[in-house]
Design a protein around this nucleic acid. Structure first.
Length: 478
RNA sequence: GUCCCCAUCGUCUAGACGGCCUAGGACACCGCGCUUUCAAUGCGGCAACACGGGUUCGAAUCCCGUUGGGGACGCCA
């Protein structure tokens, strides 16, 4: 019997769930589902200063939105502090770690210093590894200390399922801190302790953790524990190939939810960032994705997060959504926008007309507002372009009365009526069509005009023509 | 600066064993058709193996170097 696959997503609640984190969570989820394993959620909140419950909540919300349900957790590291202490104490006893009595301030600016400092071969921590008795004595006297791991003089390597064999000389590793002087464990210690405790079989995370991995490998070895499999995912960059940041616009997953992207579309799009099924398929639902997912399909090169294709995916999902789903989406969007929808009973026919044209669900409350509410404005640019002709002042009322009086109101009849009028008045049908389009939809682009009429109904069509008539008359003479 | 990693169209990518690649698909873009507009759709087009050396009968695929990019170097995660 093969060991059950157990993977985890371990965000730190110091920010929202961002695109990169979501992709990591997504791959972990896919991998777990593919292998019938467990997807575990763990909140890495040992940085008390920067962590917050609000952020943790936001991350959970983002995962929910994407449909990334977890099987265990969320575990909060802040509630497991005792656990980590004993791990560190054991390393201390075994002489694999030592107390560091350096003053905190001495190290505060270490980072900036390091970047400007001349190259140095050995970046090993300067704090002496005191003799055991000495160390005990100082600790006993209440002197504050941190616990550092004693990096052995050797080389450390591990196999990465994506990047292959990676080896570093331990000389390039500092004696990193395991327990801070305030007693709180650091990242390296807690990840390893938890991953061991939770029986994580595959550590799937961003490539920014590659250079952290040797330190963690050392910890596994010190603990005498077998290594999990590691799989590092290439990073997601902004269009300028720089690390994705607020400069690039929205990086929070929930921001995409608010912009009107569908979770399924976002899910699909994200799945293809850094991974490929190996063939040309792109529109893949969750079930297919689960079946197809493999770490072998993960590429090594960083990927740029580009919005055009996301938009395309979204429009595809909008187009293919069931009418029930579409209605739910539109209603929700219109509600949040504070738009009161007329004739909800006949909503579906309008949605069917719009679905191929919609790119985001926000479109329903913006460019397609006139299909749901009588309270809409003419797009100024559209008016400028199509209301110019003075003949319209006569034509629109004429059309209005024709529609009012005609017996039928069908696709054919409405078109015939309009075209005949244009012919009689010796104007191009386009003149009327364009103006009427703006009258009915407020926009210069819309679905086929006569379909729009039908879907709005005779009554509304007439009312809107009337409205345009009044509007034209209110316009100052040229 | 040091260490690690990466490198196919503008973007996402296909490309197990080197020959099936005059490098495929998708998005975007540009034409044409359809058409009352836009979208959709049909057809067509533009567009890449970073560079230089090897290895080989043969390299996008292997090796080395160069250049470029990214990541990591915290008592952050």
């Amino acid at each position: 019997m093969v060991k059950e696959v157990r993977v985890r997503f371990a965000p730190s609640p110091t920010g929202y769930l961002h695109v990169g984190g979501a992709r990591t969570a997504l791959f972990n989820w896919l991998f777990a589902r593919r292998h019938g394993g467990k997807f575990i959620l763990r909140i890495e909140d040992t940085d008390f200063a920067r962590s917050s419950d609000v952020m943790a909540e936001g991350i959970l919300q983002g995962l929910h939105w994407l449909g990334l349900n977890w099987d265990e957790g969320p575990y909060f590291q802040s509630r497991r502090l005792q656990h980590y202490r004993s791990f560190a104490d054991r390393l201390l006893e075994e002489g694999r770690a030592y107390r560091c009595f350096c003053k905190l301030d001495d190290n505060a600016d270490r980072k900036s210093e390091q970047l400007t400092k001349a190259p140095q071969d050995d970046i090993r921590h300067e704090c002496p590894d005191f003799a055991a008795e000495d160390s005990e004595r100082r600790a006993g006297s209440g002197e504050p200390f941190a616990i550092r791991f004693k990096v052995p003089n050797d080389k450390t390597s591990f196999k990465d399922l994506v990047f292959g064999e990676i080896e570093v000389d331990n000389k390039t590793l500092e004696d990193f801190v395991l327990i801070r002087s305030d007693g709180i464990p650091t990242y390296h210690l807690v990840v390893v302790a938890d991953d061991m405790d939770m029986g994580i079989t595959h550590v799937i995370r961003g490539a920014d953790h590659i250079s952290n991995t040797p330190k963690q490998v050392l910890l596994y070895q010190a603990a005498g524990s077998p290594l999990p499999e590691f799989a590092h995912l290439p990073l997601i960059l902004g269009p300028d190939k720089q690390r994705l940041s607020k400069r690039h616009g929205a990086t929070s997953v929930m921001a995409y939810a608010e912009m009107g992207y569908l979770p399924d579309a976002f899910f699909n799009f994200l799945s293809l960032l850094g991974w490929s099924p190996g063939d040309d398929r792109e529109l893949l639902n969750r079930k297919e994705l689960i079946e197809l997912f493999s770490l072998k399909g993960v590429g090594k090169a960083n990927a740029v997060f580009g919005l055009e294709k996301l938009d395309w995916f979204n429009s595809q999902y909008l187009r293919n959504a069931s009418i029930d789903k579409l209605r739910e989406l539109a209603l929700k969007e219109l509600q949040t926008a504070g738009i009161e929808v007329f004739e909800v009973e006949s909503l579906d026919s309008r949605l069917e007309l719009l679905r191929v044209r919609a790119r985001k669900s926000n479109d329903f409350s913006t460019i397609f507002k006139a299909f749901f509410s009588d309270d809409f404005d003419y797009d100024p640019a559209a008016g400028e372009k199509f209301f110019e002709d003075p003949k319209l002042k006569e034509l629109i009322p004429a059309l209005h009365s024709l529609y009012l009086e005609s017996e039928e109101f069908t696709l054919e009849s409405t078109e015939k009526t309009l075209r005949r009028l244009a012919e009689q008045k010796e104007v191009k049908a386009g003149l009327l069509i364009n103006a009427v389009r703006v009258a009915l939809t407020g926009q210069k682009v819309a679905p086929g005009l006569f379909e729009v009429m039908l879907v709005l109904g005779r009554q509304r069509t007439i009312e809107r023509l009337e409205r345009l008539g009044r509007y034209l008359n209110s316009l100052p003479e040229k």
